[in-house]
Amino acid sequence: MSKKEGRKRGKREGKKPPRPPPPSSSSSSASSQLSGENSSGHTSPPVCTLLTVGQAFSGTQNVSSLQKDEAWRVNVRIQGCNLDHGYLCGTMEALNVPMADTPVVTFWEGEIVDGKNYTFYTGKWEASSEDDIRHWTKFPSFQPFLEQVKVDGGKSLDLINYPYIFMRWKEQYFVNVGTDCGLTIAGFYYVCFSCTDGSINGFYYDPNSSPFQKLELKSTNEGRSGFSFSFYELQ
């Protein structure tokens, strides 16, 4: 989420029950990631014990603008995850948003870049392939894949043993506030998740918001909640 700046063309953001994920179903050198034309390029990303339903993360999102330095404290919890379908979802809570009287909670759905269900090219949400490359290259762990992504979006990359998982998170609606809260969820996050330590780095993209708002999260050990079956509910 971001502060509203200028014209916004976000979708209708009413509260509604989350839709279920699809039916349910982690280090190597960069040179081993190219799979060519065989089916090994169409495998799920690495199974990671820190990317599971109920796992919580805490950190900050830098929302600074030319006029003001500002960062929000952010909590994220995964509510659903299906690696076979490249899907996950969860909630995001921003705690110290100046224009809100209470913490602001949103529900988001994610696309896992696996070469089968989703590639590094977004193809929607007003993001061009140039926007994609510009954001993905901000992650050092993406650099080994740059040239191949330029060729086919990463369809021929085998990410099964790579220690990082790349994702996009798109907030779908506000959970506890109205659309007049002074925030927008018209954009989405480019996300890089470390299977080694559970850290998350991301950059928010919205043509009408301050560019490259950085999301930095670390996994926490608080109690888990959520469902990993073919349905789930917010806790």
Rank of each mutant, 00 (worst) to 15 (best):
N96P: 07
V97Q: 02
V97I: 13
V97Y: 02
V97H: 05
V97G: 05
P98D: 10
P98Q: 13
M99G: 09
A100E: 03
A100H: 05
A100S: 10
D101M: 13
D101Q: 14
D101K: 15
T102L: 09
T102P: 04
T102E: 12
T102N: 11
P103G: 06
V104P: 05
V104G: 02
V104R: 01
V105S: 08
V105H: 03
V105M: 10
T106W: 05
T106P: 09
T106R: 02
T106N: 00
F107L: 12
F107R: 06
F107D: 02
F107H: 11
F107P: 05
W108M: 06
G110P: 02
G110N: 04
G110A: 14
G110R: 06
G110S: 10
E111M: 15
E111Q: 14
I112A: 05
I112E: 07
I112S: 08
V113R: 09
V113A: 05
V113Y: 02
V113P: 00
D114L: 09
D114F: 10
D114Q: 05
D114K: 09
D114S: 10
D114T: 10
D114M: 09
G115P: 04
G115R: 05
G115M: 11
G115E: 10
G115Y: 05
G115L: 08
K116V: 14
K116S: 15
N117Q: 14
Y118H: 15
Y118Q: 12
Y118A: 11
Y118S: 12
T119Q: 09
T119C: 08
F120R: 01
F120L: 04
F120W: 07
F120Q: 06
F120Y: 13
F120D: 01
Y121C: 03
Y121A: 06
T122Y: 10
T122P: 00
T122K: 13
G123N: 07
G123D: 07
K124S: 15
K124H: 15
W125A: 09
W125F: 14
W125L: 13
W125P: 00
E126R: 14
E126T: 05
E126Q: 12
E126V: 07
A127V: 03
A127E: 03
A127N: 03
S128N: 00
S128T: 15
S128Y: 03
S129F: 12
S129M: 11
S129Q: 13
D131L: 00
D131M: 03
D131P: 02
D131G: 00
D132Y: 03
D132N: 09
I133N: 02
I133H: 00
R134I: 04
R134V: 01
R134F: 10
R134Q: 08
H135T: 06
H135D: 07
H135W: 09
H135K: 04
W136Q: 00
W136Y: 04
W136N: 03
W136D: 01
W136F: 07
T137N: 02
T137L: 05
K138L: 14
K138S: 08
K138W: 12
K138M: 14
F139S: 00
F139A: 04
F139C: 06
F139Q: 00
P140L: 10
P140Y: 08
S141W: 08
S141I: 06
S141F: 08
S141Q: 14
F142V: 03
F142N: 01
F142A: 01
F142E: 02
P144G: 04
F145M: 14
L146H: 05
L146Y: 12
L146M: 08
E147N: 08
E147W: 12
